[in-house]
Amino acid sequence: MPVSRIDLAGASSPEALVKRILQAEPNLPVPVPIQELCARLGILRIEDLDADEFEGGLVTDAKRSEGTILAKRGGEPRRRFTIAHELGHFLMAHHIPDKPGRFLCKSSDLLRLTAKEGDQRQRKEVEANRFATLLLMPPHLLRGAMAAFREPDLQHVLVLARDFAVGKEVAARAYVQYHPERIAIVVAGKGRVQRCYRSLSFPDIICGVGSSVPTGSLYQSTPLRPNVASDIAACIPDVWIDVKRDLRAPSLYEQVYLQQNGFAMILLRLEPVPEETAAERRLDEGWRHRFHSGRR
């Protein structure tokens, strides 16, 4: 593995750093050997973190000449993401720790995708997460893996999570981002919406974070088997999205993957509304005129 810190000179953003790493390692295998990369890039050790409050940490000096990554024991995919996240902190010199020489990150930090304006700590966590995702699921390798997929299906998310050795939620975020269709994946826990990932063309979900999963969802209305993706079925679009009055409702399809720990992924796929023919428009306009004028 030839990559070294010299290859990263001048790169400071997550995207620039990962681009340099991939240029130095054009034949990087999947799953990405994150611990080997750490060793090549100045991390001396990866040690277990025994602290309930934190998921990961980094011990380093002011010059970032070397470092030790701390990662909580648990599922290997989650630990790999933690290690990549802390490596991002190490390589981005503008990331200044809260305490001199020591970063400590909570599980909520490793889920953060946006930062409040002016909150530098949150911005650092967002950047470390972007770095970890790009490094563990390099875009060119992810696109290659997804080329074999056709219609959106949660089985694809499970395949990506397995092949790239990342958590299911990390794979779900990447799947939504790179899939060409209008899709969203809702993460539910104990019957409530926890997080939602949408493609740019998918409308807002009307169920806010913390609200109950709608009763019209397959999650609530259909018997589900843990660790088995349900069939894909049509659902009433108003359950999840705002459908404007007097407009033809789009077709919305839903699929659920129930996990044993009380969490679930809910895939939503939106099909565009077909354009009305001239005859359909005339019929619709005539009906509206009669309705509003009181004529029958």
Rank of each mutant, 00 (worst) to 15 (best):
I6W: 08
D7R: 07
A11V: 05
A11H: 05
E15W: 03
A16M: 13
V18I: 06
L37Q: 10
A39R: 07
G42R: 05
G42P: 04
R45K: 09
D48I: 15
D48G: 15
A51H: 03
D52R: 10
E53V: 08
F54K: 07
F54C: 13
F54L: 08
E55Y: 08
G56R: 04
V59N: 01
V59Q: 03
T60Y: 02
K63S: 04
E66W: 04
I69E: 00
L70I: 02
K72I: 05
E76P: 06
E76N: 04
P77V: 06
R79E: 06
F81E: 10
E86L: 10
E86R: 04
G88W: 04
G88E: 09
A93P: 02
H95F: 10
I96A: 13
D98E: 11
P100H: 07
P100D: 05
P100E: 09
R102M: 12
C105K: 06
S107H: 05
L110R: 05
T114V: 13
T114G: 03
K116P: 08
G118I: 15
R121G: 10
Q122L: 10
Q122F: 11
R123M: 15
E125S: 15
V126D: 14
E127C: 13
A128M: 15
A128Y: 06
N129M: 12
A132M: 03
L134M: 13
L134T: 01
P138S: 12
L141Q: 14
L141S: 07
M146V: 01
M146N: 00
A147C: 01
A147M: 04
A147Q: 02
F149K: 00
P152Y: 01
L154V: 15
Q155N: 15
H156S: 12
H156L: 06
L158F: 14
D163M: 11
F164L: 11
A165F: 14
V166Y: 01
K168M: 05
V170W: 00
A172M: 11
R173G: 01
A174N: 04
V176E: 00
V176N: 00
H179V: 03
P180A: 02
E181Y: 01
E181I: 00
I183L: 02
I183W: 00
A184E: 00
V187A: 08
G189F: 14
G191I: 14
R192H: 15
R198H: 01
L200A: 02
S201Y: 00
P203C: 06
P203K: 12
S212K: 07
S212Q: 10
G216R: 13
S217T: 12
Q220L: 11
S221I: 11
L224W: 11
I232P: 00
A233R: 12
A234I: 08
C235P: 06
D238M: 06
V239M: 14
W240L: 11
I241N: 11
I241E: 13
I241M: 09
K244R: 10
D246C: 08
L247Q: 07
R248C: 07
A249V: 07
P250M: 03
L252C: 09
Q255H: 10
Q255S: 08
Q255D: 02
V256Y: 13
Y257N: 09
Q259M: 12
L267A: 06
R269E: 06
L270W: 00
P272F: 03
V273H: 03
P274L: 15
P274R: 12
E275M: 13
T277A: 11
R282V: 04
D284Q: 08
D284A: 14
G286V: 04
R288K: 04
R296T: 03
